[in-house]
Structures are given as structure tokens and as C-alpha cells.
């Protein structure tokens, strides 16, 4: 059983005829040649296939492509042009936030989505009092970053530098011009991101 599916991938409209049982991940990688999202576990467990789906981070290996007709997808690849990296991408480079790089596109999409969630005031499992009583917003401490990124596994174990990279990016996104990028000591809060950015559209 087949269906035609049209997606907006990294700003470009792309169509393909797929079997209904084709996942979003397989459509992207195998049919459309978009190889930025990776297939790690194919069971929703590792986060390597994470993209921004209509602006929100989502795994693509447990989603059928037909169920996402018309969706707008941003992969790590689509976040930037050469020479004009997204701040999260730049932070991964600055902090050595990867080793083999296989989990990295998923980490980066997840981090971008997560920073927007935090900026929008969404609590995490470790947010004190569910964020209800603190009007100043979510403080992205290292504990917050780790909790919010726990759906992205890294077999190389680059976690320490991944946290550093996201701390840097969160600092850069923070209100005020407090200099970011100093990979401060482990316990320091990274600051509060404010304006969320809409990555759902095209950047082309």
C-alpha cells in the first residue's frame, strides 16, 4: 500500500511515493537522500534520528511518513549554511562535543529544540517546583541540560563536552550580553535563554 508524501525538508519541498509502513526516518534517508538524521536503534531509544518536526524536536524512527504529510522538517544539516553555523553547531565545535559524530546531528537538533522548550518556560523532571514559583524562568543548570538531553545517547561517551557545548549555546542565547563560551566550572548555571527561535521554516 503506497501513498504520496510531501514534506518541507530544510526549506525545500520534497515528495516521494512511499509504502505506508515507511518511517519518516527511512523516507528522509533512503528516498530523499537526507542523511543528516541517523539510524541508531530504530526503536526510539537513542535519539540519533531526532529532527525538528514542525519546530519541535521529535524522533523519526517511530513515526510513519504518511502520518506526517505536509510536515516541515529541519535537520541538523538545515540549521546552517557552510561558514554560517547555528550557535549550537558552533558550540559543539568549540567544545569538542563529539567524537565519531554519529549521534551529533540528533544531539544538535535535540539541543536546539530543548533550548526553545526551556525558553518557553517548559519544566523538566529536575526543575524545582515544576517551575511554578519562579518567575525568572528556567535556569539551565548542568542538571537541567543533562535531564533534558537524556533522550540522546552517545556511544562514544562525549557527554561531558556535549553538556559544555549546550551550556555555551544556552549562554549565548541568554538575555543580556554576558560573555558566553567560557565553559565555566561544572556547577555554574548557564543562564536563562529568552527569545525562542523558529527553526521550522526555511533558511534557504
Amino acid at each position: 500500500m503506497e501513498a504520496n508524501v510531501t514534506l518541507h525538508v530544510d526549506g525545500e519541498e520534497r515528495s516521494a511515493v512511499v509504502e505506508t509502513r515507511t518511517t519518516l526516518l527511512d523516507l528522509l534517508r533512503d528516498k530523499l537522500g537526507v542523511s543528516s538524521p541517523k539510524k541508531g536503534c530504530d526503536h526510539g531509544q537513542c535519539g540519533a534520528c531526532t529532527v525538528l518536526l514542525n519546530g519541535r524536536r521529535a524522533t523519526t524512527c517511530l513515526a510513519f511518513a504518511v502520518a506526517h504529510e505536509g510536515a516541515s522538517i529541519t535537520t541538523a544539516d538545515g540549521l546552517a549554511d557552510v561558514g554560517d553555523l547555528h550557535p549550537v553547531q558552533q558550540a559543539f565545535l568549540d567544545q569538542d562535543g563529539f567524537q565519531c559524530g554519529y549521534c551529533t546531528p540528533g544531539q544538535i537538533c535535540s539541543a536546539v529544540g530543548m533550548l526553545d522548550e526551556a525558553a518557553a518556560g517548559q519544566p523538566s523532571h529536575v526543575t524545582p517546583n515544576g517551575g511554578v514559583s519562579d518567575p525568572t524562568g528556567i535556569k539551565l543548570t548542568d542538571a537541567e541540560i543533562r535531564e533534558r538531553m537524556s533522550g540522546n545517547l552517545c556511544r562514544c561517551g562525549a557527554y561531558v563536552n556535549i553538556v559544555a557545548a549546550i551550556r555555551q549555546a544556552a549562554g549565548a542565547q541568554a538575555a543580556g550580553a554576558q560573555a558566553a563560551g567560557t565553559a565555566a566550572d561544572d556547577t555554574q548555571a548557564a543562564g536563562t535563554p529568552t527569545a525562542g527561535t523558529d527553526y521550522s521554516g526555511d533558511r534557504s
Binding site: 519541535r56 521529535a58 535535540s110 519544566p123 523532571h125 515544576g130 540522546n152
Partner: peptide, 23 residues
Amino acid sequence: IRRRYPVLSQALLAGASGQLRNL
């Protein structure tokens, strides 16, 4: 939910991951 039923918000946030909860 966060104000009236924190137990529910906490339970949800203790499950799965950010990218799975979005789905």
C-alpha cells in the same frame, strides 16, 4: 496542570524523553 496537579506533570516529565513526549 502544573499548578493544580503537580503529581501529573511530574509523572509525565519522569517518563520517556523530550523528543518522545513531543509525539
